[in-house]
């Protein structure tokens, strides 16, 4: 096995699927020859598969998403890219009213097998329109599946599963993990949706988080181990479907839960998880469920402000110490 980046793992997954199925194609702004995607995920694919299958579009998010819907219901397997997660707001009708609802509204007559790739997260000092974490918007829309890979291995396995899925999949990436390297098999493998991964086993407290916060939680767990605090870290990998069992089993074991994401706090995915756990594992909880999120503000530009906005290791560690 070789070590490759999250970015290249995604590209490998996309490439394998394009080789396997001629109906798979990519479209989005600057995904093609001249740029290869704003984060270079598709770089080289237009050269290999041609501009027909790796298609540069105008700056027309609503039409990109809508065209993906139209192509998907007529036999193609579109992978649409929206350059920044914040900009899916321009495509909300096609994503949330059309793609998400068609199978249901039309009584099961049609399938919408599209993948919409985009990227969330701060840490790059690019301010309020390019740094948000909006996954909860889509979790609140029935009919959309949601993948949230934090590791290269998962990125490859999940993108392949997403492309083969018969329903619309929102495939969210994170800006700060594109360059992370890890061992990724060159051969084909799929990761089923709805299977969380226990990243680290522990006995005293469960930490559940997504994206870059998984990496921070693992660092914190390592630190706290020195003080004799044993932290279990769970990475859900997909939010819809959600692996409740792995989470609930863990909470039953540790009796304590800290939820960590980069989202602004109110109405975040962490709020939903907290609600599920108190419904399904109330009797096993020995302490209140803690949430570590960003404050309820837009994402600020200045580095001092943005560092304050994004949860850091200290805030995660403090929340853990408060309940163990």
């Amino acid at each position: 096995m070789t070590e490759i980046t999250y970015r290249d793992a995604l590209k490998q997954g996309l490439r394998e699927e394009m080789l396997r199925d001629d109906n798979v194609f990519i479209m989005g702004e600057d995904v093609g020859l001249n740029w290869g995607g704003a984060f270079k995920v598709t770089k080289g694919l237009a050269e290999e598969f041609g501009e027909d299958r790796v298609r540069d579009t105008p700056i027309s998010e609503n039409a990109i998403a809508g065209a993906a819907v139209g192509a998907a219901i007529t036999g193609m397997r579109p992978v649409a890219e929206i350059m920044f997660g914040d900009l899916i707001s321009l495509a909300m009708d096609q994503v949330c009213n059309q793609a998400a609802k068609m199978r249901y509204m039309f009584g099961g007559q049609t399938s919408v097998p599209l993948v919409l790739r985009s990227v969330f997260g701060g840490g790059k000092n690019i301010a309020s329109h390019h740094s948000q974490s909006l996954e909860a918007w889509f979790m609140h829309t029935p009919g959309l599946k949601i993948a949230v890979p934090a590791f290269a291995y998962d990125a490859k396995g999940l993108i392949k599963t997403a492309i083969r899925d018969p329903d619309p999949v929102m495939f969210f990436e994170h800006k700060l993990v594109y360059d992370r390297k890890e061992e990724v098999p060159e051969e084909e493998y799929l990761i089923p949706f709805g299977e969380a991964k226990v990243r680290r086993e522990g006995a005293d407290v469960t930490v559940w988080g997504t994206f870059f916060m998984v990496h921070k939680a693992l660092e914190v767990a390592e630190e706290l181990a020195k003080d004799g605090i044993s932290v279990e870290v769970i990475d859900p990998r997909t939010l819809v479907p959600l692996d409740k069992k792995t989470l609930i089993d863990s909470v039953k074991k540790t009796g304590r839960l800290v939820l960590v994401t980069e989202e602004t706090k109110t109405g975040a995915t962490t709020a939903e998880i907290a609600a599920i756990v108190q419904e399904e594992a109330f009797d096993w909880l020995d302490a209140p469920v803690m949430r570590v999120n960003a404050p309820d503000t837009p994402v600020p530009f200045s580095p001092t402000l943005e560092q304050y906005f994004i949860p850091d290791n200290k805030r995660i560690a403090d929340a853990i110490r408060e309940i163990v």
Binding site: I59, I126, H130, P300, F301, S302
Partner: peptide, 24 residues
């Protein structure tokens, strides 16, 4: 903008700038 906006949101309202926006 007190450091909240940066390059993409550079704005001074009182000279008649309605705003600079990062969303094309």
């Amino acid at each position: 903008c007190k450091g909240k906006g940066g390059s993409m949101h550079i704005t001074q309202f009182d000279v008649g700038v309605l705003g600079a926006t990062g969303v094309v």
